[in-house]
Amino acid sequence: MKSPSSSIRDVLAANLKRERTRRGLSLSKLSQLSRIGKATLSQLESATGNPTIETVFSLSRALDVPISDLMDTRYSDAVTVVRAEETEVLSGAGVDLRALDRIEAGGVIMEVYDQQVRAGCEQHSLGHAGTEHTVVQSGMLLAEVDGRRVELGPGDYIAFDGRLPHTYAAPEGAVRSVLVLHYRSGHEKLKDPPH
């Protein structure tokens, strides 16, 4: 999702300013909508802030855009190879995300992430745009979505409306998973998450 020469800070700065301006929002109004301080937003737009998962997800929710609209520089090659050592990690309180790709087809946008929930940690989200899909690769993941707790092991899958408050936790050791976020083109709100 990013070119090797672009940092997460630079990409987020340009995309955040573009999306905020496109919607005619002041920094103050975006601060209210996202629950992020105006000074922090100013730093993010000037590429001097340190974005976290929580920040990016809050901005996605407030602007009602896919996360990749904030983080994407678009690959143009027919074959996309993403090397782990060349991909910046976006970290939060309990999760490290590596953006792998953004796919657009048939009126749907899908973002693919390598996700690691750190051992003994929890990652809380107030919600964000799109539908969230997670497939556990290794470890035991505890997911709580809108008050419903589910334990997931290797090969298990969960999907839900990303706008719902949710938490991922790894109480027994690190968890590796594939996270896919999907949105309708034009960022229309999804009515029913797949079952």
Rank of each mutant, 00 (worst) to 15 (best):
M1F: 10
M1C: 08
P4H: 10
S7G: 03
R9H: 07
A13D: 02
A13H: 05
T21W: 10
T21P: 11
G24K: 06
G24M: 12
S28P: 12
R35P: 14
I36K: 13
G37R: 09
T40L: 11
L41W: 00
A47V: 09
A47N: 04
N50T: 08
I53N: 07
A62Y: 04
V65N: 00
I67L: 13
I67F: 06
D69T: 12
T73R: 01
V81A: 06
V82T: 15
R83T: 14
T87A: 12
E88V: 08
A93L: 06
R102H: 10
V108K: 05
I109H: 02
I109F: 00
Y113H: 12
Q116M: 05
R118C: 01
A119P: 02
A119E: 00
C121M: 11
C121D: 11
E122G: 07
Q123W: 06
H124D: 10
G127S: 11
G130R: 00
T134Y: 08
V145H: 02
R148G: 15
G155R: 05
D156P: 02
Y157F: 11
F160I: 08
P165M: 03
H166W: 07
H166N: 09
T167C: 06
A169V: 01
A170P: 01
E172L: 07
E172C: 08
A174D: 06
R176C: 04
H182M: 09
E188P: 12
L190A: 11
